[in-house]
Design a protein around this nucleic acid. Structure first.
Lengths: 218, 218
DNA sequence: AGTTGGCATCTTGTATACAAGAATGTTGAC
DNA sequence: GTCAACATTCTTGTATACAAGATGCCAACT
């Protein structure tokens, strides 16, 4: 074996939670999952502990592992934190970003624009991802980049929902433009403000989306 | 057993790393530690994984667990992130804080002042802690409060060093005053700015402290 | 009938046994 | 004398066996 089983199991379990195989509140039976994945309980327990650290699973002593999908409230909270962290990245990146990175941002943004014109949400999503990742990196703070990337990844499945909103991609593009300009100008406050708004609006959109699902209107 | 061994082991190991029993780069031998703590390798490995998630230990596949104390660079990065997170707490708390919490902040601050007058660093530290915790809570975002608390805890051993600086406590008090005024006025930007500066300066002080250790001057 | 206590069973937490990869030391050849 | 290949040994990763807490059910008692 070239890679540890526990790692693979963790990824697969994560996948199964995201795709709804295990929904919120479900108890994850160690022995069943172990035999399902064809391993013993030991690596499976390792995987569960990992997911617990990521927040996907709650590990209650002597009770077991329970799927813990963030509810609407927690999700809003997470988006709010995401907004603040991206703002922080922007604040720092404005002072530290390299010309090469700025060029990359321009490139990603143009591809984004192309994707919008082509109505290609997949491409848009990929380039948008790249756009933000560059900013994380250029904040010049490895710890911040790592933490922000973690949260980003955790919100990924929910973030994607946003793109369904009519006109969201176009609006997002104009927000990107403001971000880019602030970074180019080295204006920390403007960059932070633009990024905060850019991400915060996603949380709000998400909120509307969930409300919309209940009302079945709009 | 009322509590899981792995939890206790994790805490004790953390303690041993902080107090220097295991220094940076040391390999943590599973069997030796297991017999030292009087448990088997299984709970010890669990503990190691936990510490790995906290960042105290690096887990290299098929190689073992190595103590990974943050170096000066990473530490500065962490303080920088801490500053941004506290700023975020302040920004949100300015809009959401309750009158009761404001009263508590005043109270903590007064006790802080008393501790400064009495040159009592322990009391100062405790009340300062309370002061910040209240702000985390009053940000009205459970997720943010949790994450900020985590980082705070992780920086705790380093943070404490700051108080050794002559005049730091007094300076800190005046910063607290600015924070409090901003929160009372509901001024998000001012609160964020004040808190960011308040924490950032700790990182800088720490930097000086480390440089001072090398130069053996001042 | 409701409640409570005890028992059976199930599940987690821990220990130990086993397998496989990595490190190291030795021996042989050049 | 040095380098390399092999074998030995050590350590991690995994499986299984065992112990102990938790859950649920049934019966007996109020």
């Amino acid at each position: 074996m070239e890679k540890r089983h526990a790692d693979l199991i963790a990824e697969q379990l994560e996948e199964r939670i995201f795709d709804g195989t295990h929904s919120d509140g479900d108890r994850l039976d160690e022995v069943r999952l172990a035999e399902h994945f064809g391993v013993s309980r030991t690596p499976l327990r390792e995987a569960l502990q990992r997911l617990a650290r990521s927040g996907l699973v709650e590990l209650i002593p002597r009770r077991g592992a329970f799927v813990r999908q963030p509810g609407p409230v927690e999700l809003l909270e997470m988006f709010e934190v995401m907004a603040e962290m991206e703002a922080a990245c922007g604040r720092l990146a404005a002072k530290r970003i390299s010309d090469a990175a700025l060029a990359e941002l321009h490139s990603a943004n143009e591809k984004c624009q192309a994707a919008v014109s082509a109505q290609n949400t997949d491409d848009y999503y990929a380039e948008n991802e790249k756009f933000h990742k560059i900013i994380y990196q250029e904040a010049g703070n490895g710890f911040l980049a790592k933490e922000t990337g973690n949260l980003h990844r955790r919100l990924q499945p929910f973030r994607r929902q946003q793109l369904r909103f009519r006109g969201r991609m176009a609006q997002s593009m104009s927000e990107h433009k403001a971000i880019l300009e602030a970074l180019e100008a080295g204006d920390s406050e403007a960059a932070a403000h633009a990024l905060r708004g850019h991400v915060a609006i996603q949380g709000e959109k998400f909120h509307s989306l969930m409300a919309g699902l209940k009302n079945a209107a709009e």
